[in-house]
Design a protein around this nucleic acid. Structure first.
Lengths: 191, 191
DNA sequence: CTGATTTCTTAACATAGGTGAATGTTTTAC
DNA sequence: GTAAAACATTCACCTATGTTAAGAAATCAG
């Protein structure tokens, strides 16, 4: 049994081992090298992804600039929910920033599970709600804080990002250029 | 029967009249005058709200500035999902911008319904997913576009906002000062 | 209908962050 | 271990948007 995934799901809905095995039988495991893409702009996102090891980043390419949306470390779920739900091509690129191991489950499988057992439906609802809260907080941070505040709060709230992610991706994540982040770091005295 | 609400829910999950009446029996109706608040910063959001007439705006007060998060016209649902789910006080203020009529349903009622019938659980999931997509698009617009592009796209995509909402709230919604919006409008030749 | 209030516009000046270019540093791949 | 690639820093200058202040226009409430 995949204990890591079992424990992760159990934080949200409590499943028996049998229920978990039912879920798990629908999944596949894939490995990505550093810099390898899980999905590129234009692809339709037909899976949900659980990061069991490593780190993913998704970003938009806009006029030659990359705008990083989020980083996902081990024990987190990712999907481009918009593309996943509507079936439209994604505008996101998702790449591994480290050697990364992923467990995938397709939309079709998930929908089967939703029908089989309301616990899975509930899992889906809770995950969507949580995803909403996550992106909402990000939106608030982007609209309500200056770049400097965003960087300081990132250090406080997500030290893993500071430790594991190259600085130019961090800059892109907080919505500024690498040069601007350097300027801010200089001003702050390189915390 | 409340046809408006029945039709609205039926766009998401198909309910029999009996199921709808079960849902409806848990709701209440309230009326707000222009400028009246539905919820203030510090309150816990314990309901979901369906706007049957009028218009709501939610905003954050930050250092004397208001940052508008969203407008909700008739036939739309609103809740501060974060406060609603966690039970923590909301940082949002929600006010009516027009005389407004609201149908409310409490968190407790909703959870009862989720247990009674998986269709309601499904409704909850689909609403959360949709809310996620909505805020995601807003985040992308804020991070990937200039203020001028945001205004032009708003004209194209949400003419109702342009028609019904005072300009300084629109400015706040697209993340700039009213003076900056005036400047942009002047440059564009007052579309 | 009218005074009070709210909303919109303009302008001069300030500032955070962007841009381009040069240089130094670290990491990676072989 | 080394060359190449990726990453980080600094600087000078630029631009979009913020700020303050004033007045004009529109809307509201009694």
């Amino acid at each position: 049994m995949n204990t890591q995934l079992f424990q992760n799901i159990n934080k949200t809905v409590s499943l028996s081992k049998e229920e978990f095995e039912q879920f798990y039988s629908y999944t596949q495991t894939i490995k990505l090298k550093r810099k390898e893409f899980l999905l590129s702009e234009g692809d339709t996102c037909k899976h949900s992804y659980f990061v069991s090891k490593g780190c993913l980043r998704y970003f938009y390419s806009i006029e030659g600039n990359e705008h990083t949306g989020q980083f996902f470390f081990e024990n987190n779920w990712y999907t481009d929910l918009e593309s996943f739900l509507t079936g439209k091509p994604s505008r996101q690129n998702i790449e591994a920033l480290e050697p990364t191991q992923i467990i995938t489950i397709s939309k079709d499988s998930l929908e089967k599970l939703y029908m089989l057992n309301p616990k899975f439906e509930r899992f889906g609802r809770l995950m969507a709600e949580r995803a909403f809260i996550g992106i909402k907080q990000r939106t608030e941070m982007l609209t309500n804080q200056s770049a400097e505040e965003r960087y300081i709060n990132l250090i406080r709230e997500r030290p893993k990002v500071i430790e594991r992610i190259p600085q130019h991706y961090i800059a892109s994540y907080i919505g500024i250029q690498p040069q601007s982040l350097s300027r801010i770091r200089k001003k702050l005295g390189n915390y």
